[in-house]
Structure formats: structure tokens, C-alpha cells
Design a protein around this nucleic acid. Structure first.
Length: 809
RNA sequence: GCCGGGAUGGCGAAAUUGGCAUACGCAGCAGACUCAAAAUCUGCCGGAAUUUAAUUCCGUGGGGGUUCGAAUCCCCCUCCCGGCACCA
């Protein structure tokens, strides 16, 4: 018998697949299936998380191909970003070279895993052929007002030496390196994702194939709230403070007004008041410098501006403060404070001795003043609205404000525009220049791409692009005069926001992609990736898809129809990480057991969405299984399948095929699918070598394991006399009639008072009386029925017979 | 604090619509083969009690409920993981 030399057969089949080109995407997009994995950052080395992602993807790919779908299954590299640039600083190697090397290594390892990609479509975002289209799209966005520049308080990571988008700050820390994000005021480039806030929120409702967790995270991030603007006129000068509130029902309880320290009119207002201007300036500087601090609550602080504003509904004068917890970026940057009904306002009022006035009463009879009551209730001390419910009062008070011209209903979002400027080299240059005469000018489309220069210094400080004289010096596209080129590059999340479109048309020199191809192949039927991108890549891509649609480039609203978020790979109770030192190198596992065993173990050990516990012992069990299959298949290589298998065994085969098929396509339960195949092999093992059952069982197992362990299965399929490569064979079908017939006669449990006491064999026509009779013939049942009164009989045909008994007769 | 997900043998995990809890695998134990080991094969493998066996009782994080019947449905609680974090 031939030895299971996995490394030899894996190489053999990888070569056959490459030479035969059988995984090339069909032209025909009818009955298409677009299968996509989140493309990797080419770090050079695969880790287990990648292997898991690809094992899931490739299994689905091979399954759907054999099910007759026209499959698009591409791969690429998200190749721009900081690691390459940091390597340049450290090792004096150009990021482009370093990246090329890493991609080559990564590709090599992906090939070793036997993944069935259409390699001809590979996309490398660091290539000018790719990033020129980032620039092209940027110019379209600029034209449409979807890209713009503004000065604002931004997040800055000193370790990465660049600004960050809101989504890229996690609990106040840089998402990439964990450094505390600093608040700075800078002029930066933004994409106007907020234009799509409502659409992006509503669109989630249609995404039935997305995990609830991801949708919920996006909902929270978009953060829609309904409320009202209310105008408070300043008494000392002609100025209106517009506030945003979600609780107009508490308006009569408002006792002061708070504004953001970064409010553009803060100083101007202070000058008209009797506050201490120097102290106010100092307060503003201090709060801006403090930025947003992580985790622990900042103490609430404020300073009076020395002016008052009038509550439009009751004419009361309210003092105006700046407060460190009020955001300029949300609402209007000013709020009406109702300390009796808001925790934060309560804390502030207590600290500064401000009035606390109850206007909403909950279930309690009296407000005890010990804290804020933030729930809804009946209004008190609120003029004509007293006695109304909160809900009713919200509408009535907005109506009153509207009729007075002092307020209007509105919807606000937490979502902010996407800051895309990065002060780093290894990203897409933003295609604009600053002309001494004409100011900011976009570069004409025909002059693209703006290529990253090579004459740069990677000193570790400052933006390397500033060091390239060739790059900096430009001429104005309009007047031809002297101009300075923009040195900010784009956030690399721009690259990944539309790469799935470039796969459709990777060599197009005229457009990022042909619209027809996008219309035919999108949406992605199955996307697979990590949940860490729930509000980063996945939100940006949804925005891009909608923005590209408004530019007329596609007709699609949502890019990803179904999303599968795989769990982490865990070892010894913690996520595999270099710092903990619990990593397992996939290459070593492959060397020892082969790619098939590695893939099969990863799919078998847990369902894909759950975290996966790596186990060195577990992988040996999988290896044993493959080896057993190998040995059994070789035993049958010469046997013939002239004779029919027994009816009982036929049922086992049909059932296995049916269950494996369901498990894969319905809920990605690869673990149970593999278990079913193991069971089939265990049942097959009970029959002697050379028997029809043995041959048929092994052949079915080989065919079914194909998507999971493609090299071994392909080899064994050949050994068993398959005349086509396994991946060219149709996925086995199953006979519904045989399954239906088999379901007619079955063993069902007999329970007494719900406790199982035995089994009876019934068929579809067995009546309750017959079933009970059969049950009474069982000694175990008889013992329990002796001297007992039968109170009730529950007979569910094909399921159960439950006899409920009372006390002795 | 708010939102989302989870808790089943020694371990990873199964269980259709509420219908035999623990499939499949790992580890463990016993046996076969072997001079021996590895590999392979066979059997056992939730807990307790009955002093063999068979049987009975208990058992899906905890407590209550609905039901002929609950891992599954309802209410309350505990713990773990993830996300957001003063968003007015």
C-alpha cells in the first residue's frame, strides 16, 4: 500500500491546478457566485487567522463550483500602510521593494495551502495601476463635494506620526499601535460619509445575511437621534445660541446653557459678558489640550461666560457656561441643561451650585433631589404642558417652538466625516496642488497617476514626501505658475473600500472598472472576514458603494449580500499573539501534517463564527482520519462496483450526502459536515474490504471531503478510478425518495411522564393504539405501568410516545 | 453605564418545530498485534447509589415558571467575551 506522503501529493495537485487553469473565472455571470475574503495586509508571513479565513473560503469555493455556480474567487493584497514604511526607516529599504518581497512570500504560503483562487485577477493596491484609480475617484468625489478640506480638532497618533479617522480611535487609543490619540487642530481632507448617514443606517435593514452584531455596531456608530433645535437669545448682544436636544419635554426644567470650549463663537460671546476673559481663554486651551481621554471619566469642568440667554417658552434668563464635556462636533455644540433629568447636567449643577428643577415625574410621587431622573413621565411645573406624558409633550413643545419661530425638529447623527489625510509616504498621493496664485487646484484626470517619488528620505520624523524636491515642485494646471504639491496621502482604508470592484476588471486602463461587469457580478454573494472591521472597512465600503452609485459608476447600493465573521484563533485561553508567545506557525503545522490536515482541523474544531481553540492533540486526530481514508481508498483501488449496496447502507449514504450538503450551504456548519463524513467512514469500516458497501462508502466520503481536504481527496478520487479531476465532478446529489421512504419506518422513544423508558419501531401508519400496545410489550415499560393509572397519552407520530401515569389503581 | 454574543462531560463541541442530552473528535482506561516501542485495530468512557450485573436517581451557569415533555420558550439572577463610552 502506498504511504500517505502528503507533501508529495499536495505539490502534485497544486501543479495540476495551476497548469490546467481550472479555477479561472467563467466569462458567464449567469448563475454567478462572488466569493470574497478580506484581502490581507502582506506582512510576509501567514498566521492562523489567515489560514482560518482561507480554509472557510476555499471550502465554500470548491463546494459552489461543484454545485455548478459560476464562481468568482479572487485574492489580492492590501499593500499600502505603515509597516512597510517603518521597515524602510529601520532597514533602509524602499517600501515598494519590501512590499513586493512580502507579497511574494505571502503568495507562496497561500499556494502551499492549495487555495483555488483565480490568480489572474490579483490586485496589489500599492501598484500605481491600482492607486491611480484612488486618485481618479478622489477627483470625482471632489467635483461632487464628497471630498473636502476643513480645519477641525482631529485625532493624532504621535507614534504613527499621522492623523486618524474617528473610526480608527478605539477607546481613545490608536487602533493600530495603542498610543493615546492627541487632540490637535489641523486642516485636513475629509470624505463626506455623513451625507449617507441615513442611507447607511436604513440599508442595514436589508442586510439579512449579515451578523446582528455587526449591524448593531454600525447602528451605534451612526448614532441617529431625533430631537429639536431650540433658539436661546443672548440678552447682552444680538446673538442666538442654537441648542440640540432630544428631550424638548424637559425645556421648562432648563436652568443653564452649556457650550463646547471649541465653539467658534465662545470667545466672541465672552467679550460681551462680565467673565474673566483670560481665565476663559486658559480654560479653552486646557480642555483642548486634554483631548479625549481613554476609559476613566474626566471630571466635569466649566466656566461662566458671564452672559445670559432666554428660555423661549418661559422667558427665564439662563447663565451660559463653557463645559469640557460638550462636543462641538455633535449637534450644534451647545446644549440646554436640565439637571433634574440628565446625569451629566446634574453633576455639573451640583458642582457649580446651579438650580435643579423637576419637570418630569416618573412613578415616584416626589422628586428627592438625590440624582437625575432620566426616564419619561408626566410633566410638572411646565405651564400649559403640565400633566402631559413625555412623548406627547415632546411633540407639543416642538410645535409651540415652531409656531414661535424658536425651534424646529431635526435628526442628528454621531457619525462624523471620514478624515482621510495621512502624513505618511506609503499611501496614495492626494492629487491636488496649491498654486501661489490660484490656490487649491485638482490635478487633471489625464495627468494621473501621481506616482510616489523614490528620492525620499525615511528619517523617522516628518512626512517623507516633504523631502522629495521633485515631488513637491509642481506647476499649476490652470495658470502654469509655481505650485506646491499636496503631501498628505490617503488613508489606506480608501484602497480597501472598492478593491472588490477592481477584481472584476483588474487590467482596465480607462476606468476603475467597467460598469456592466459591476452590475453583473455584484453584490458579493459571500464575504468572509474578521469582525474587527465592523465599523471600519465594512462601513467605508458601504459608503463607497453608495457614493460610486451617485457618480453613476454602478447601480448597486450594498456591496456585500452575505457576511460571515470568523472567530479568533485562541491558544491557552488567549488570542494568538507574539507578545503572549502562544503563536502556532501555520508553516510548521503544514510541514508536519500537510495543508489538508491543517485546513480540516481548523474547520472541524469549531463552527466558523466562534473562537477556535488550537489543539496540537486535536490535529493528530484529524491526521489519523485522513490517513485512514487514504488506506481504505487504496484497498478499494482495484475493486469493482458491480454489485448494489444493501438498502440500509444506501440510506446511510443518501443521508450523509444530504446532511453534509445542508451543513455547508445553510449555515456553514463545516464541523458537523466533517463529523457526518467521519460517521460515514466509521459505518463503512464495518463492511469488509472489497464489498460494494466498502467501495461506495469510501468513494462517497472522498467526494464529500473534497472541498475541505482537496489534495488528498483529488488524489484518492484518481486512485478510485475517477476519470475527471474531483473539482471537475458535480457535487453528489441525494435521492429524496429514498430518504422519504426511510423516514417512514423508524424507532421512536417511549417515555413515561417524560422519562425515556424504551424504544419502539413504528411506521407512518402506526396508530396510537398500536404504539401503546407495542410499548406495553416492553418489559421496562410494563414495570412502570403496573398498578398505575394511565392519565394521558401523547403520541406524536414519528417522534415520541409519552404515557402519563397517576398513582396506584 | 448602554448595546451585542455566550455558558452543555476531563477538553473542542453536537442536538430539526419543544420530543432518546452529550453525535463527531481529543484526552484517558482496558485489550489485540509486537521481543519491545511506535503505528494500527477492538472495546469502555457525565455523576451518584445499590457491595458483580442490571437498574434507579441526579445532571445542559443559578433560581423560578409554562408544558404530557424544556439545553431549546417566559421571568429573575450570576459569570465570561466583544463593541461603544459624557453624543445632550
Amino acid at each position: 500500500m502506498r504511504e500517505y506522503n502528503f507533501s508529495k501529493i499536495e505539490k502534485k495537485w497544486q501543479k495540476i491546478w495551476e497548469d490546467s487553469n481550472i479555477f479561472k473565472t467563467p466569462e458567464d455571470s449567469k448563475n454567478k457566485f462572488y466569493l470574497l475574503e478580506m484581502f490581507p495586509y502582506p506582512s510576509g508571513k501567514l498566521h492562523m487567522g489567515h489560514v482560518r479565513n482561507y480554509a472557510i473560503g476555499d471550502t465554500l469555493a470548491r463546494f459552489h463550483r461543484r454545485k455548478g455556480r459560476n464562481l468568482l474567487y479572487p485574492i489580492g493584497y492590501d499593500a499600502m500602510g505603515l509597516p512597510a514604511e517603518n521597515a524602510a526607516i529601520k532597514n533602509k529599504v524602499m517600501p515598494s521593494e519590501w512590499t513586493k518581497l512580502c507579497i511574494a512570500q505571502m503568495k507562496e504560503q497561500q499556494k502551499v495551502l492549495g487555495l483555488s483562487y483565480d490568480w489572474a485577477r490579483t490586485v496589489d493596491t500599492s501598484s500605481p495601476d491600482y492607486y491611480r484609480w484612488n486618485q481618479w475617484i478622489f477627483l470625482k468625489f471632489l467635483e461632487k463635494g464628497l471630498a473636502y478640506r476643513k480645519k477641525a480638532v482631529i485625532n493624532y497618533c504621535s507614534s504613527c506620526a499621522t492623523t486618524l479617522a474617528n473610526e480608527q480611535v478605539e477607546s481613545g487609543l490608536c487602533w493600530r499601535c495603542g498610543t493615546k490619540a492627541e487632540a490637535q487642530v489641523r486642516e485636513q481632507w475629509y470624505f463626506k460619509i455623513t451625507d449617507y448617514a441615513e442611507e447607511l443606517l436604513e440599508g442595514l435593514e436589508e442586510l439579512e445575511g449579515w451578523p446582528e452584531a455587526v449591524k448593531q455596531q454600525q447602528r451605534n456608530w451612526i448614532g441617529r437621534s431625533e430631537g429639536s433645535f431650540v433658539d436661546f437669545e443672548v440678552e447682552e448682544l444680538d446673538y442666538t445660541i442654537e441648542v440640540f436636544t432630544t428631550r424638548p419635554d424637559t425645556l421648562y426644567g432648563s436652568t443653564f446653557i452649556l457650550m463646547a470650549p471649541t465653539h467658534p463663537d465662545a470667545l466672541f460671546l465672552a467679550e460681551s459678558g462680565d467673565g474673566d476673559i483670560e481665565k476663559i481663554k486658559d480654560f479653552i486651551d486646557r480642555t483642548v489640550a486634554a483631548g479625549s481621554s481613554p476609559s476613566e471619566d474626566k471630571e466635569k469642568e466649566g466656566i461662566a461666560l458671564g452672559i445670559t440667554a432666554v428660555n423661549p417658552v418661559n422667558g427665564e434668563s439662563l447663565p451660559v457656561y463653557l463645559a469640557n464635556f460638550v462636543f462641538m462636533e455633535y449637534g450644534t455644540g451647545a446644549i440646554m441643561s436640565v439637571p433634574a433629568h440628565d446625569d451629566r447636567d446634574f453633576e455639573f449643577a451640583k458642582k457649580y451650585g446651579l438650580e435643579i428643577r423637576e419637570v418630569i415625574r416618573g412613578k415616584e410621587n416626589k422628586y428627592d433631589g438625590s440624582g437625575a431622573y432620566i426616564g419619561e413621565g408626566k410633566l410638572v411645573s411646565s405651564a400649559e404642558f403640565t400633566g402631559m406624558d413625555s412623548k406627547q409633550a415632546i411633540l407639543a413643545i416642538i410645535e409651540k417652538l415652531e409656531s414661535m419661530g424658536k425651534g424646529r425638529p431635526t435628526v442628528q447623527y454621531k457619525l462624523r466625516d471620514w478624515l482621510i489625510s495621512r502624513q505618511r509616504y506609503w499611501g496614495t498621493p492626494i492629487p491636488v496642488v496649491y498654486c501661489l496664485k490660484c490656490g487649491l487646484r485638482p490635478i487633471p484626470e489625464t495627468d494621473l497617476p501621481i506616482i510616489l517619488p523614490e528620492d525620499v528620505e525615511f528619517s523617522g520624523t516628518g512626512n517623507p514626501l516633504e523631502s522629495s524636491q521633485n515631488f513637491l515642485k509642481a506647476s499649476c494646471p490652470d495658470c502654469g505658475g509655481e505650485a506646491k504639491r499636496e503631501t498628505d496621502t490617503m488613508d489606506t482604508f480608501v484602497d480597501s473600500s472598492w478593491y472588490f470592484l477592481r477584481y472584476l476588471d483588474p487590467n482596465n486602463d480607462n476606468l476603475p472598472f467597467e460598469r456592466d461587469l459591476a452590475d453583473n457580478w455584484l453584490p458579493v454573494d459571500q464575504y468572509i472576514g474578521g469582525i474587527e472591521h465592523a465599523v471600519l472597512h465594512l462601513l467605508y465600503s458601504r459608503f463607497f458603494t453608495r457614493a460610486l452609485k451617485s457618480l453613476g459608476l454602478t447601480s448597486l447600493k450594498e456591496p456585500f449580500k452575505n457576511l460571515l465573521c470568523q472567530g479568533m484563533v485562541i491558544k491557552d485561553g488567549a488570542k494568538m499573539s507574539k507578545s503572549i508567545g502562544n503563536t502556532v506557525d501555520p508553516q510548521r503545522v503544514i510541514d508536519k501534517y500537510g495543508a489538508d490536515t491543517a485546513r480540516l482541523f481548523i474547520l472541524f474544531a469549531a463552527p466558523p463564527e466562534r473562537d477556535l481553540d488550537w489543539s496540537d492533540e486535536g490535529i493528530r486526530g484529524i491526521f489519523r482520519f485522513l490517513k485512514r481514508l487514504w488506506d481504505m481508498a487504496h484497498e478499494e483501488s482495484e475493486s469493482s462496483s458491480e454489485n448494489e449496496v444493501s438498502a440500509d447502507f444506501r440510506i446511510i449514504i443518501e443521508k450523509t450526502v444530504s446532511e453534509v450538503t445542508q451543513d455547508i450551504q445553510k449555515n456553514f456548519h463545516f464541523n458537523t459536515a466533517i463529523a457526518r463524513i467521519m460517521e460515514l467512514l466509521n459505518a463503512t469500516r464495518k463492511h469488509p474490504a472489497g464489498s460494494p458497501e466498502r467501495r461506495e462508502g469510501v468513494k462517497t466520503a472522498v467526494s464529500l471531503i473534497g472541498p475541505f481536504a482537496p489534495h488528498t481527496a483529488s488524489e484518492l478520487w484518481e486512485v478510485l478510478g475517477g476519470n475527471k479531476p474531483l473539482d471537475g465532478e458535480a457535487w453528489p446529489s441525494y435521492d429524496e425518495d429514498i430518504l422519504r421512504e426511510a423516514a417512514k419506518s423508524m424507532e421512536i422513544p417511549v417515555t413515561i411522564g417524560g422519562k425515556p423508558r424504551g424504544l419502539i419501531t413504528v411506521n407512518e401508519n402506526t396508530s396510537q393504539e398500536e404504539a401503546v400496545e407495542a410499548a406495553q410489550r416492553l418489559p421496562a415499560v410494563k414495570d412502570f405501568l403496573d398498578n398505575k393509572k394511565i392519565i394521558k397519552i401523547v403520541y406524536v407520530p414519528g417522534r415520541i410516545l409519552n404515557i402519563v401515569v397517576g398513582g396506584p389503581l
